[in-house]
């Protein structure tokens, strides 16, 4: 098992290197720099600023020193916020992103499982078709469409919820969580439905029915547990997706999380912050994918023994 984890981590190194190199050079070739502002900056001042951030050195030297800083876990200073390090800015953005991801996960599980159970209990009736076609729409609809749509309906027409913000007015966390969680809820619904249908046709369920147990107990006490394995396996990568994929939602709803500052950093040409967030997200995805693989292996005895053979 340890060898498996070790080899996966080694594989991650070239991936991260390519991500860093691509981002590093791409942002520098984008027009405009961190110090171009509407008020023209005197050439002397501009030169001094570039010198302070080592932008006057050859690009490859800059890249080299960035990598060596990175190896020490130092993302460098922000260009936009003097006196702030990128590490600090990222750390400040994590709580909102993590909170949003967590609520979205709750939305995904609660909505998804409810819909899946309802559908599985009456297969091929309207109670199946309705949630399942909604789920299909949920999977297909991108968040940048669903978000504004929800805002339009619940924020502007019905005026039930705030249109944006995070933790500023009551209820402003509802729409972002729903928007982000919806696509995942749809997956969970489909997984739950198929899992539950499969389990419901098993012999032990028939035994339970024969014993005259009420339907409620059969479903919730006996069937559901078995049908949840695929859902659980799905939740690992889902959480990684929720954290890293939240920047669209954060931008729509102005959530002060990592994703939004990632986008703003790009607009500000805050080179170090762009790179720092990219690397951070890349690491996050690598780690969560690895975790879910480990989890899947641990859940699945066949895979587990396979790993054991190799080690």
């Amino acid at each position: 098992m340890w060898r498996f984890i070790g080899s996966r981590l080694l594989q991650a190194i070239p991936v991260l290197f390519i991500v860093i190199a691509l981002t590093f050079f791409l942002v520098r070739f984008a027009p405009g720099g961190p110090f171009s502002t509407e008020k023209a900056v005197v050439p002397e001042v501009k030169r001094a600023l570039e010198a302070q951030y080592h932008l006057d050195q050859p690009l490859l030297v800059q890249f080299g020193s960035y990598l060596s800083d990175l190896a020490r876990g130092d993302f460098g200073p922000s260009f936009k916020y003097p006196g702030r390090s990128v590490n600090e800015l990222i750390a400040a953005g994590i709580p909102a992103t993590a909170e949003l991801g967590f609520y979205a996960l709750i939305v995904a599980v609660v909505l998804g499982m409810t819909a899946g159970i309802v559908a599985a209990l009456s297969p091929n009736t309207w109670r199946d078709y309705l949630p399942m076609s909604s789920a299909m729409i949920g999977i297909c609809m991108p968040t940048f469409l669903l978000g504004p749509l929800l805002v339009l309906i619940f924020g502007l027409w019905l005026e039930w919820t705030p249109v944006s913000g995070w933790g500023e007015v009551p209820g402003d966390k509802i729409l972002p969580s729903l928007t982000l969680g919806a696509a995942y809820a749809a997956y969970v619904a489909r997984l739950t439905r198929s899992g539950l249908l499969e389990v419901l046709s098993q012999d032990y369920i028939r035994t339970a029915r024969a014993k005259g147990l009420p339907n409620f107990i059969i479903v919730f006490k006996h069937a559901l547990r078995g049908s949840l394995i695929p859902v659980v396996a799905f939740l690992g990568p889902a959480f990684a997706g929720l954290l890293s994929g939240s920047f669209v939602v954060e931008t729509i709803f102005q959530v002060p999380g990592l994703g939004r500052f990632f986008v703003q950093a790009a607009f500000n040409r805050d080179y170090t912050l762009i790179l720092g967030s990219t690397v951070f997200f890349a690491v996050l995805i690598v780690v969560f994918n690895l975790l879910s693989d480990v989890l899947a292996a641990w859940l699945n005895p066949r895979l587990r023994s396979g790993l054991g053979d190799r080690s």
Partner: peptide, 17 residues
Amino acid sequence: IRTLLLISLVILTACSG
């Protein structure tokens, strides 16, 4: 599930303000 639903509702409505 019901507890989860309740908790999430409480969190979502009481988390700000």
